[in-house]
Design a protein around this nucleic acid. Structure first.
Lengths: 149, 149
DNA sequence: ATTTAAAATTTGATATATCAAATATTGTCT
DNA sequence: AGACAATATTTGATATATCAAATTTTAAAT
């Protein structure tokens, strides 16, 4: 039974995208209001760098975040320009850079981490772990469905 | 009880984003392999135009798709350049353009509509309507949670 | 009828994603 | 050692998103 055309609002992927865009916009706004001029993507990168301070390369961060190497170069350029981290050439492998936090970068991570946790809590209020698990299993099914031939 | 830091893969919003990006990339690939050089965003716009052929403005399409007017201008520029639609000045309101399909645009929509339905079916295989409803209700909760103060 | 406010579209600036091509450096193979 | 493949990063082109400012036209208010 071929489903006929649906209104966009009934397409679950459209709703997902809308919700995510809303969360992204809201988070950026909260960051800004808290005094931190940083986007969500920049935050994700900064946080991963801070977790492996001085030991992770651009490629490694890109893999963790499922991002393109080219995007990573550009996001890092911005974080460097904002004086939140810097590139240090690896002594073992001169192709790669180890990413190192600046003092300001560390302050950002220290201050933003609890803010991000609170944001997440707010977004997931009244939603049980069981429900989240269900959503996760559905996402996994979708990914699996697309990888099949 | 303040949740401590989580690995990214355990953050449900990250997983959602990953799944959506995968679906988007897969769809674009299928479009291309089917002989249609069009992105998912361009498709969404073209489809909405076709549904109100000659009677909808840029702002109206932008609202339906929850997009910025500036983005809409640029996506339409591309669709015009690809000869899939054109802008016709409205006789009632000279500020606005009515969007009109070209023959080629109509052919694209005719051919792509069943492809998109099949993609959606594939992505949602083995997922029940009940599960989709649950995901939808959770997305609504999230959106609601963010709009509260 | 003027002034003023609102609406539709565009444009410029900045951020991000993806793909392909280019560079520099390592690793591997024989 | 020398050739060739693989890896890390960068750069250019194109697509999209968001914000702010500008333009044109219409609507509203006095």
């Amino acid at each position: 039974m071929l489903v006929t055309d649906k209104a966009l609002k009934d397409v679950i992927f459209f709703s997902m995208d809308q919700t995510l865009r809303g969360l992204r916009a809201y988070s950026t706004k909260v960051f800004l209001e808290s005094g931190f001029d940083i986007t969500v993507d920049q935050w994700l990168v900064l946080k991963r760098v801070s977790e492996g301070n001085g030991t992770v390369s651009q490629t490694e961060i890109a893999e963790m975040l499922d991002k393109d190497a080219a995007s990573m170069t550009r996001i890092l350029d911005i974080l460097v320009k904002k004086d939140l981290l810097f590139r240090k050439m690896s002594s073992q492998d001169r192709r790669r850079f180890d990413l190192v936090m600046t003092q300001k970068g560390i302050e950002y991570v220290t201050a933003l981490t609890p803010i991000v946790l609170k944001l997440r809590e707010q977004a997931l209020a009244e939603i049980s772990d069981k429900e989240i698990q269900l959503v996760r299993s559905i996402l996994e099914k979708v990914t699996h469905n697309l990888s099949q031939e």
